[in-house]
Write a protein that binds this DNA or RNA. Structure first.
Lengths: 335, 335
DNA sequence: CTGAAAGCGCTAACAA
DNA sequence: TTGTTAGCGCTTTCAG
C-alpha cells in the first residue's frame, strides 16, 4: 500500500542549495559538514517534512535492518504472559541495536516470508518446525527460543534448568529443611532431567540426605502431580518441603495437600518452576523458579545478530539462568 | 546489520538464460511468460536460493509495505492479555493485507522511528501522546486504539460502550430480573458515561423501572465498588442483579456481597465489563461484556490502510461492538 | 511473449 | 568541506 511522501533528498538539497551528498551527510551525522550548511539542511528537512526513504537507504547500503519474530497465532498462545515477555525482550533488544522488528503471527503452516528480514527469532516452536526448516533452507539465520533443535543449522537459547533445580534445593535448604522431596517433570525431556539433576547435585553438595522415595517421577501432568503428592504423604518419614518441576503440577500438589488437611507452608513447603501467572491466584501464592523470558529473548537477538554479521558462522547454544521468586508457599519447617 | 545473500536477479537471469525482466515477471506472477521460461527461471531460483531484495522492490515500486504497531513497554502492559489480543488482531490484519508489521515497544518517550512504515497503529495511548504528535507532525498516518483523540489528525477505533451497557441490561432482563441496579464507572470518562447511557436506554425500552437509588456512581476504583455494593445492600428494596462498569470493580462487588453472606448468583447476579482474565479466577466466574480487542485491532489496520492509500484523506472514527460472555455470576432471580 | 533501458532515492568512493 | 558520479536490485514502460 502506498508511497512515502514524495519529498526526496533532492528536494531538500535544492531548497538548502547544497548537493544531495551534503544532505545525506547531515542525515547520517557525518561530521564533515559546515555548521552553516548543516543548519540550512536541517531547516529544509523540517520545512519539507522530509523523511529518508528507508528502502533506498538499505538498498544503497546493502543492508537489511530488520529481524523477524515468529509467534504462533492461536488464541491463548502458550500463556499470553509467555508471549508478552518474549515480545518485550526481543523488542527491547532490537531497539538497543537499532533494528526493526517485524512480526509474524503465524498459524504454524504458511511459510513465513523471510524476504524482508536478515534473521528470525522463533518464540518457541510447537507445531511449526516446518517453518524453521524452510527459513533455514532459504539461508535465513534462525534463533530458537526454549527449544533444543540439534539437527538443523540454527541457534537456540534455552533456560539453564539445572541451575534452576539447584536454586530450588538451595532455597529450601536455606530455610532449614532437611527432608526435601521432589516431584519431577517428564525425565525424557531435557528440562525435566536437568531440573532433577540440579536439585540432586545441590543437596549432595550440602550433604543433605535424599532417600530414593523422596524422588517421585511425574510427567508434567496434573494427574501425576496428584499421585506424587499422595505417595509423599504416604511415607512414614514425610518430607517437610517439596520441589515440583512445574507450577502447574505444584498447584495440583498444593491442592492435594490442602485436601488432606495439611497447611501450606506451615506443614509443608512447596516450590514450583516457571512463574506461571496462575501462581498468584493460588490459595497460597506459589514460590517458584522463574524463567527469565525477557533475558532469553534478548540473548536470542544478540545471537542472531552475531549470526547475521557472520561473526559466528556456525550456530550456537546459549543458556540463561532462572531466578527464584519468593512468595508464600515456603517457610521454615516446624520444629 | 548485514546483507541479504548476494544472489541477485541478474544471477538468476544468467542461469536461466533469460532477461532480468523475465525473471521479474515470474517473481511477480505476470502471466505473459512462456511455460518453458517460467520453468527455467523457477529452477534457477530454487537452485540459487534466490530471494528478491525487498528494499529494491519497494524502492522500484515506490511503495512501503509495512505498518508499525506501538505498544507501551512497561512490564505488565495494561494486562498482557490486552496487549496480546491487540497484537494478534493487528498481526492477522497485516497478514491478510500482505503488510509487514513492525513493532515498536516504547518507553513512551523516545520518538518512534516512523521512517520504515507507511502508518502507525497505537495500541492505546497512556503517557505517550507526544509520540503521536510527533508522528502526525511527520505526516505519518496514525490510528489509535481505544482512545478518543479529537484534536489531532488521527483516526481512532474504539469500543461501542453504549451498546455494551445495553447488552448487559438486556441480558439481565432476559433472565427475568426486574430490579436491576448499576454501579457506574467514572462518568467523566466517555466510556463510563456511555456504558450507563446504554444501560438506561435498554431498561427504558423494556419499561423496566430504574429508581435513582439503583444508579450508584463509581469511579473504577475498588473502593468505590465496595461502597457502591454496600449502598445497594442497604436499600429496603434490594436489586436482584447489578451491572458493574468494570470487571475489576465487579470482582470487588462480588467479594463484598459474599462477605455479607449473599450467594452469587443465587441471591444476586453480577455482570461486569472488559473480560479481564481475572474473571476466571473469581470464586464464581464472572459473566461480563467483552471488549473485542481482536476485532478492534483489525479495524484499526483497515482504517490505516485507507488513510495511507488516501481513499480516506481525513481521519475517521469507528466503533466495534462488545460481546456478552456468559459465565456463572448471573442467574434468574429467586421467586 | 520478451528484452533494453530508464529510473526509484540514497550512499559511498573519488575528486576537487 | 563539498560535489560528481556510480551503482544498490528491482520494476516498468516501451519496442520488438
Amino acid at each position: 500500500m502506498s508511497d512515502q511522501k514524495k519529498v526526496s533528498i533532492e528536494d531538500v538539497a535544492r531548497r538548502a542549495k547544497v548537493s544531495i551528498t551534503t544532505v545525506s551527510r547531515v542525515i547520517n551525522n557525518v561530521s564533515t559538514v559546515s555548521k552553516k550548511n548543516r543548519i540550512k539542511v536541517e531547516e529544509a528537512i523540517a520545512h519539507l517534512k522530509y523523511k529518508p526513504n528507508v528502502n533506498a537507504q538499505n538498498l544503497a547500503r546493502g543492508t537489511n535492518n530488520a529481524i523477524g519474530l515468529v509467534i504462533p497465532g492461536y488464541p491463548g498462545i502458550f500463556h499470553s504472559f509467555y508471549a508478552i515477555e518474549l515480545i518485550r525482550g526481543v523488542g527491547h533488544a532490537c531497539e538497543a541495536n537499532k533494528l526493526d522488528l517485524v512480526f509474524h503471527i503465524t498459524n504454524g503452516f504458511n511459510p513465513i516470508n523471510t524476504n524482508s528480514v536478515g534473521g528470525i527469532v522463533f518464540a518457541d516452536i510447537i507445531e511449526n518446525r516446518k517453518q524453521v526448516e524452510q527459513a533455514v533452507a532459504q539461508g535465513t539465520p534462525c534463533a530458537i527460543i526454549n527449544n533444543h533443535v540439534d539437527d538443523l543449522d540454527v541457534s537456540y537459547i534455552a533456560i539453564n534448568n539445572k541451575f534452576g533445580g539447584e536454586q530450588a534445593a538451595d532455597y529450601l535448604a536455606s530455610l532449614g529443611h532437611t527432608r526435601i522431596a521432589t516431584i519431577t517433570g517428564q525425565l525424557g525431556t531435557q528440562a525435566g532431567a536437568d531440573r532433577l539433576e540440579g536439585f540432586k547435585q545441590c543437596l549432595a553438595k550440602k550433604k543433605t540426605a535424599l532417600p530414593d522415595e523422596y524422588i517421585v517421577q511425574g510427567d508434567y501432568s496434573r494427574r501425576s502431580a496428584r499421585e506424587g503428592a499422595e505417595k509423599l504423604l504416604a511415607l512414614k518419614d514425610k518430607p517437610t518441603a517439596v520441589f515440583v518441576a512445574s507450577d502447574d503440577m505444584a498447584l495440583e500438589v498444593m491442592a492435594t495437600f490442602m485436601e488432606k488437611g495439611l497447611k501450606v507452608p506451615e506443614d509443608i513447603s512447596i516450590i514450583g518452576f516457571d512463574d506461571n501467572p496462575a501462581c498468584l491466584y493460588a490459595p497460597v501464592s506459589l514460590t517458584t523458579i522463574k524463567q527469565p523470558l525477557f533475558e532469553i529473548a534478548e540473548e536470542a537477538v544478540k545471537t542472531l545478530i552475531d549470526m547475521i554479521s557472520e561473526k559466528r558462522p556456525d550456530h550456537l547454544q546459549k543458556t540463561v539462568k532462572p531466578e527464584l521468586v519468593v512468595r508464600e508457599s515456603c517457610a521454615a519447617p516446624k520444629k
